[in-house]
Amino acid sequence: MLTYTFRRLLLSIPTLLFIAFVIFMLLELAPGDPMGQMPLTIPDEVKQRMREALGLGEPWYIRFGLWLYQFFVVEPQYWIDSAFGTNFADGKQRIISFQSRSPVFDTIAQRLPQTLWVVGMSYVVGVAIALPIGIISAYRQYSVFDQAGTFISMIGFSVPPFFSGVLVIVIFSVQLGWLPSIYDTTHQVVDWETFKFQLRQMIMPVMVLALQTTAQVSRYMRASMLDNLGQDYVRTARAKGMSESVVVLKHVVRNSMIPVVTVIALGLPAIFGGAIITEQIFKVNGLGQLLILALQGADIPMVMTITFLLAVLIVLMNLIADVLYGVLDPRIRYD
């Protein structure tokens, strides 16, 4: 397993470079113009000069090379500098966003807290609710609990957040006035009061997002459990006189985890991608909003950096999932 992991890690380097190349070419090919957001009152020759100032006059391979250099050399140097007070990165240009003309990584670091608070928390909540629901639903198939769980999770999944988000705002912010409809990204949690405020401003986006996660994970959990509950080994285990809880929680759940692990592993990178629509509705302004604004504004350095970081996470998470398969089911071998 260790050699496999090591081999996969090595292999992921050319994979990621190739992914970076494909993403760059895709962005190159896609219609879009950083000047598209500028008012029409700015004349075309001024826009042309602005494009040149952004470096868009250079051919694509130079810009791609520059991005690679900045991402893999300048940025790490800059971090070393700020950590140890050295000056490797002096005078070298970091990756700069077209829209804000500021270093891309600074903005990402600024956005990370609210994205983790909201999207990350919704994922934790969603999975924490989904696993028991999936297990109980499968164990008591067609019980009232199962029926209600199915009904709510499927409705929850098929109602898009652009509707459910606005619905909860209209109910809880406009009608009842209980919760704020606009997320305050500058809010600092320092004591109990501020923590309560943080909870109040988080609860709606977290719930809207968690509904989607819960629906998805619980459906896979339930289906997979059902497959396993009918297997011979379950009968054997019961026949051996093991208690129901051991049979279900230890044997069946463990054997049913493979699709669930896959779904969760696929979902984790998505946390860092943020939740575009939900972030926009509640004005959380996390990474999702950053990415969509960058896409709309054809902010290639920003899009490129965020999507590449996501690609790294995707490759890593899928590697972890593959390793976990082997842990969950030792019969799965890669060597």
Partner: peptide, 9 residues
């Protein structure tokens, strides 16, 4: 992995 990493828009 590659397709997962591609930005949709």
């Amino acid at each position: 992995d590659l397709v997962l990493a591609l930005p949709l828009l």
